[in-house]
Amino acid sequence: MPHHVTLDVADPDEVIRGAMTRGHTRADFFRKGAIAGGTLVAGGLVIGGLPEIALGKPSASQDVDILNFALLLEYLESTFYTEAVANNALQPRVLEFARTVRDHELAHVEFLSKALGSKAIGKPTFDFGDTVKDNWKFLATATVLEDTGVTAYDGQGTRLTRKTLTAAATIVSVEARHAAWVRQIMYGAEGYMNAPYEYPAPSALQPAKSKDQVTASVTATGFIKG
């Protein structure tokens, strides 16, 4: 499916591109500075996301739509982690993280697939390039993916029927744990030199993103091939 969102629109701080393609010194990563105020954690996104968050009265068919959106993200994450583990290029602590998270994301895929039954989307084809072959690129990408997962689930919370929300809630906190874990691996030993972005918990409130925002970000990574 062709997408015409350019990377500049979806990745203005070049976080994702930086993670995928560039030299990965800390200076590079943070020269973009406003990562904390950019794609992932900006207060403006919460407000901007509200119109869609508010729209869409919960229904069984909307639940299907949202769970398939979640399933797509879980397919992406589970494949990412599976490939990264298999490529055997990760440092020990990072490998431990990747293995555990892989197993969780696979469990999430299984759970969502079962919940959706015949309505589940099929697994897309992915290409993660260097992000599953290089230790630091893996970490940077994992950070983006986990944060995106949390914003995605939280953005849909009010649109789900409360029953489905209860089930989805058991997943979102696990993604948040993953998100904290990977930051702790990356920045904990050095004492979080770039606060608050590097903190496992960068802010008192977790922002949410609308489905359109998440879809645009994910599409723009180029990870999804078809």
Partner: peptide, 17 residues
């Protein structure tokens, strides 16, 4: 609910940390 889910995710980050 939006606020509750937001705080819930942050507490999970705290727990992970």
């Amino acid at each position: 609910l939006v606020a509750a889910l937001s705080i819930h995710a942050v507490e999970a980050r705290h727990a992970g940390w």
